[in-house]
Design a protein around this nucleic acid. Sequence first.
DNA 1: GTCCAGGTGAGTG
DNA 2: CACTCACATGGA
Length: 287
Amino acid sequence: MKYSTYNNFLCIEGISRSLLDLDKTLNCGQCFRWRKLPDDTWVGTIDNKIFMAKHKEIDGKPCIITTANTDEWENILHKYFDLDTDYESELTIPSDDDFANKAYEFGKGIRILRQNKWESLISFIISQRNNIPKIMSTINKLCMAFGEKLEIEVLGKKYTDYTFPSAEVLSKLDISDLDGIGLGYRDEYILLAARTIVNKQIDLDKLADSKVTGYQAVDELLELRGVGPKVANCVALFGLHKLDMFPIDIWIQRIIDTYYNGALNYTMYGKLAGLVQQYMFYYIKYV
DNA sequence: GTCCAGGTGAGTG
DNA sequence: CACTCACATGGA
C-alpha cells in the first residue's frame, strides 16, 4: 500500500473500484449500518469507532481517502474489507455458467466484510421476512436505544453514530424494553440469542476459527431460536467469514429456478462460493 | 384495504 | 420427510 495525504486525510493509493467498490460492498445487503453522505462519503462504525471513507481520483489514479490513520487502516479497515484475500485468483466460475459470469462482471469490487460476529448474528435474525430498508431502520433504533453514542468531527462538522449493543447489555433486558424498536415477533429471538452467547453455550469466536468448517458452524447456529438454514448460512458467511457458504433466500431461489432449472450445485464455485452468491444477489436486485 | 419483505417454528399427514 | 400456516411491522 502506498500512502499520501489529501487535504489532511489519509489517501491510500492504487485501490481501484474493481478491487474494492465501497458502494457495492456497503450497499449489497451484507451489512446494514453504513450510510452515504450527499458527497459520496461513507460513514460507518466498526466495533467502537466511527470511520469515513470515499473514492477519489487523484492525478487520474484511483484512491481511497479516509479519516483513519495509517495504523487504523492497516489494522482495522484493511482487515474489515478483507483485502488480504485475493479474490481474482481464487474465484472459480465455469466459463459456460452465463448467469454467474454476468453477475460477477456486474458485482466485481464487492468484498465480503469481516464484520463483528455478534452484530451480524442479530442483524440476520432481524432480516428474516423483512425488507432491507426496514432491517436498517430497526437495527439503527436498537443501536440508538442500547448502544453507546460515538462522535467524529470532520472539517468542523460532527457526525454521530452508535455502537452495536453488546450481548451482555441485551441479555439483561426484559422483553418489554424492546417495545417500539420495531422488531416484531423477533424480539424474543434477540434476547434468547443474547443469553445463549453470554452463557457461552455458543462461542462465536470459536466458530470463526479456521479449523471449524462452515457446515459445522451452521449446525451450531441452528440451535438458536429464530435461526434457520438461511440465517445460519448468512451468519456463517458474513459474520464468521466462511466464504464457501451459500445462503439461499427467495432471491437466490428465484435465480436457481429461472437460470439453473431448479437445482444449483454451488460447491462448484469452490472456496469463494459465498462471494459468487453475493454477486448473484447484488445482480438480481440492482441490475 | 392488500401485498410483500435476504424465514422460521409448529403442526399435520 | 414434505407440506401447510401464523407470525409483527411498515412501506408501496
